[in-house]
Design a binder for these strands. Structure first.
Lengths: 221, 221
DNA sequence: TTTGGTTTCTATACATGTAAGAAAAATAGC
DNA sequence: GCTATTTTTCTTACATGTATAGAAACCAAA
C-alpha cells in the first residue's frame, strides 16, 4: 500500500504486509466485533493475505495479542497528575494501570505477561518503584513491592474477568453457588453465616482498598 | 467395571463410563505424561469410549480441568497446625493453599476460577475469614480481605507460571529483556539503574513477604 | 542472461475442542 | 411382546492454531 519507488536495499521478496498493518487490522476487528472474532484466518483475509503469511511478522497468536495489548496501553494509558505524598503516588500509579487494563475485556488471555512492558507502562512502574524507595524501602524491596502490587493487580483483573465470562456463558448455577448453598455450619460456621451474602460481597469493587492495604503493609515492614 | 446385578431403577441407556472414571484417568495421564498430553480424544480412548461421550459427564475441557484441580486439592491439601496468633493463622492458611497450587504446573489454565472451592479448600477460606474477624475486622471487610489475598495469591502463581513457561518455550531473548536492555536513564532512572538486576530480583520468591505485608495492611486500616 | 542467495508468501495437512444429530440401550405403560 | 420415553453413546463435521514444504519475488554476482 505504501512504498512505491525508493530503491530497495534488502534482498529477498518484498513484504506485502507489515507488522503494523497486522496490528492495526487486528485492533479494528477486536474493537468492532470483539476478541472472539479475531482469528488468524479472518485477520489474514482482512489484510489481504494468507494465514501463514502472518507468521512471518508475528510469532503466533499469543504474541499478536501481547502486541495488541501494548498498542492498547500505548494509546489509552496517560500519565496522571501525581499527588504529593510518595505513598499516594504509588497507589495512583498502580490504580491507573489497573483501571485501563480492567476496562479491556479481551485481556484475559495475555495478562499473565510477566510485567506490562510497553514504554508507556514502564513510566508507571518507574513511579511505583521510585516512590517506594522514597518512602524508605531499599531498591531491592521496592522491586519486590512492585511485584507484589502487580500480582495483586493482575490477579484481581484475571479473576474478575473470568468470573464475569463464566456468568455470561453459563446458564446453570455456578459451582460456587451450589457449594455455598449447602455448607455445614458446624464445620465452616463463618462461611455458612456469610453464604447468603457472598455473591454480593465478592461483587463489590474493593481493588483500591486492597491496594492501599498492600502498600501500607509494604511500607510498614 | 463395577455394578453387575442390582436392578436398575432409572430408565435410559445405562452409562458405561462415570465422571469418576474420567477424572481418575485424566489424573493418571496428567501425572504420568503432563497436561499437554491430556486431550479429549486421548482421554476417551483411555477410558474406552469416544470423545463426545465424555461431554455427557463433563461440560467441556475447562470443567474437566477444574474438577481435576479440586481433586488434586482434595488429596494434597492437608490442614496444617495453626499458630496461636490469629494474624499468623491467616498467613499460614493462605501460604498453605499457595504452596500446594504453585507446585501444580498444569494449573494455569484453570486458576482464574473465582475461588478455589473444593470442600477441603473451603476450610482454609474459613480460617482466613474467621481469623480476620478475630483480628477486629467486620465480617464484610474480612471477606474483602480474603478476596484481596486470593487475588494476590492467584496472580503470583499465574504470573510466575506463565513466565516460567515462556522461558522454557522461547529460545529468543524475552521482550522484557530487550526492553530493559535499552532504557533511557533520563526518563526512567530508577529502572535503568536496576535493569541489570531485574531478572534476578523478580526471580526471588517473595510470596510470603508480600502476603505478610498485605495482611498487615488489611488489619491496620 | 544465468545462477545463487535471501526473504516473503502460499498450499496443504494435522491435531484439537466441540456442535448437531442419529443411533443404541435401557425402562414404563399397554 | 410392542411402543413410547429417556438417557447415553457414536458418527460426522467444522473452526481454529500452526507445522512443513516449497513456490515466488527480489538482489547481486558470474
Amino acid at each position: 500500500m505504501s512504498h512505491s519507488s525508493a530503491p530497495r536495499k534488502t534482498p529477498g521478496r518484498p513484504a506485502r504486509i507489515s507488522r503494523e498493518d497486522i496490528i492495526g487490522t487486528a485492533r479494528r476487528i477486536v474493537t468492532e466485533e470483539g476478541a472472539d472474532r479475531l482469528t488468524m484466518r479472518r485477520l489474514a483475509q482482512e489484510v489481504g493475505s494468507t494465514p501463514m503469511a502472518l507468521y512471518h511478522h508475528v510469532r503466533g497468536k499469543e504474541e499478536l495479542l501481547l502486541l495488541l495489548l501494548n498498542d492498547y496501553a500505548e494509546r489509552t494509558l496517560h500519565r496522571p497528575a501525581l499527588p504529593d505524598q510518595p505513598r499516594e503516588r504509588v497507589v495512583v500509579a498502580a490504580a491507573a494501570i489497573h483501571d485501563v487494563l480492567a476496562a479491556c475485556p479481551w485481556i484475559v488471555e495475555v495478562l499473565t505477561a510477566d510485567d506490562l512492558m510497553s514504554t508507556t507502562a514502564l513510566w508507571f512502574v518507574e513511579q511505583i518503584v521510585d516512590n517506594l524507595v522514597e518512602c524508605g524501602l531499599t531498591p531491592e524491596r521496592a522491586v519486590h513491592g512492585y511485584r507484589a502490587i502487580w500480582y495483586y493487580t493482575a490477579g484481581e483483573i484475571l479473576v474478575r474477568a473470568t468470573a464475569a465470562r463464566r456468568r455470561a456463558t453459563d446458564d446453570q448455577p455456578t459451582y460456587r453457588e451450589r457449594v455455598f448453598a449447602d455448607l455445614d455450619p458446624g464445620e465452616l460456621p463463618r462461611l455458612a453465616r456469610l453464604s447468603g451474602r457472598w455473591a454480593e460481597l465478592t461483587a463489590e469493587d474493593t481493588y483500591r482498598d486492597g491496594l492501599r492495604a498492600l502498600v501500607d503493609g509494604l511500607l510498614a515492614s
